[in-house]
Amino acid sequence: MCYSAQIEADYRKYVKMFGAAMSLREFAELYWEHGGRELKAPMAMEAAFSDPQTDDEHRIQALIAENNALRATKFEQELFKQRARLADAERILETKTTKAATESRRIALDKIDAAARRLADLKRTTLKDADSQIYPGWYAPVMIVQDGRRVVVPMRYRCRLPGWTEQMEREKPGTFNARRDNLRRVWGKLFGHNHGIMVVNRFYENVDQNGKNVVLQFDPQPAQPMLVACLWSRTTIPGEPDLWSFAAITDEPPPEVAATGHDRCIIPIKPEHLDAWLNPNPSDLAAQYAILDDRERPYFEHRLAA
């Protein structure tokens, strides 16, 4: 499965590369709906709106700024709370070493570090490679076709299948990937109907090596943006904005990935198949399987993730 990926998070790149339009409503609802709650979105996706050029971009930039201000207040409150906790624990430890005070001190230090890092990230303006990285449950731009045009929509990287409830989703948290050999059975309501593309520059996997879990980074050679085949779903939730979610399709890995001990790999489709993939004919699934089989096949170099 694709544990994590470094994506093209700037929707403007999709506009330039593919002539896609931004789905203003979905971007705006994403930030409006979270309203200061922790939003799992790559910083690079938000940074794309830091220099707004249109009225729509100004609206989204304002929502992002408002959301980040609320989040900053939350982190500052957490810092105050944990620093008070730390001081209390250290006062106790000055006179007597207790297990409870030692543990409280450890937890406070960890939470202070986490809150300080998140607060610093909100204020940082220079992007790092990690600012384009997503994990299951995070939001990412996905290109789909709506009403005959290519549109970029922010979607959660874990698909809620049609008919599923939130509880059913929690019981099956692995739906951020869709196995090619399960497309008809498990994903039949989406395969041949709701196809999308996520642009990925590299991906990461958890691999067991000598009984120890390590995270490997896989880079395509030559370096290139990969058009990763995805399936997506739109779930209507009464009283809330619709939930847009997606999964990356995976298949048996190429030899160099299999040699590392991993048994799955994302599927980058060829640019010449883009229109056919985004506009599937549900009566001709063989054509969609043919696109997945006639994929791009870069060589994947790997190394331990930083």
Rank of each mutant, 00 (worst) to 15 (best):
E8G: 03
D10R: 10
Y14L: 11
K16S: 07
A21L: 11
S23I: 02
S23E: 13
L24N: 01
L30N: 10
L39I: 12
L39W: 04
A47F: 11
Q53D: 10
Q53M: 10
R59A: 09
L63Q: 07
I64L: 07
E66V: 10
N67Y: 04
N68T: 00
N68R: 11
A72F: 04
A72S: 14
Q77V: 02
E78H: 09
K81G: 00
L86E: 15
I92D: 01
L93T: 00
E94H: 11
E94A: 08
T97F: 03
K99M: 09
A100D: 14
A101M: 13
A101R: 12
S104Y: 02
R105I: 00
L109V: 08
I112M: 14
L119E: 08
D121P: 04
D121I: 11
R124Q: 04
K128M: 14
D129T: 15
S132W: 05
I134S: 06
I134G: 10
V153L: 10
Y157V: 02
Y157T: 00
C159I: 06
R160F: 05
E166L: 12
E166F: 13
Q167D: 13
Q167W: 09
E169R: 09
R170V: 00
E171A: 14
G174K: 03
R180C: 08
L183M: 07
G188S: 07
I197G: 00
I197L: 03
V200M: 12
N201R: 13
N201H: 14
F203L: 13
F203M: 15
E205L: 08
E205M: 12
N206S: 11
N213W: 10
V214K: 09
V215G: 02
D219M: 08
Q224A: 13
P225A: 07
C230L: 06
W232S: 03
T236N: 05
I237P: 05
P238C: 00
P238N: 01
P238Y: 00
E240R: 13
E240G: 01
D242Y: 06
D242P: 04
F246W: 06
A247K: 01
A247P: 02
T250Y: 06
E252H: 08
E256T: 08
T260D: 00
G261I: 02
D263K: 04
D263N: 07
I267K: 07
P268Y: 01
P268M: 04
I269G: 01
H273K: 11
N281I: 00
I291H: 00
D293G: 02
R303T: 13
L304C: 03
L304M: 08
A305F: 09
A306E: 10
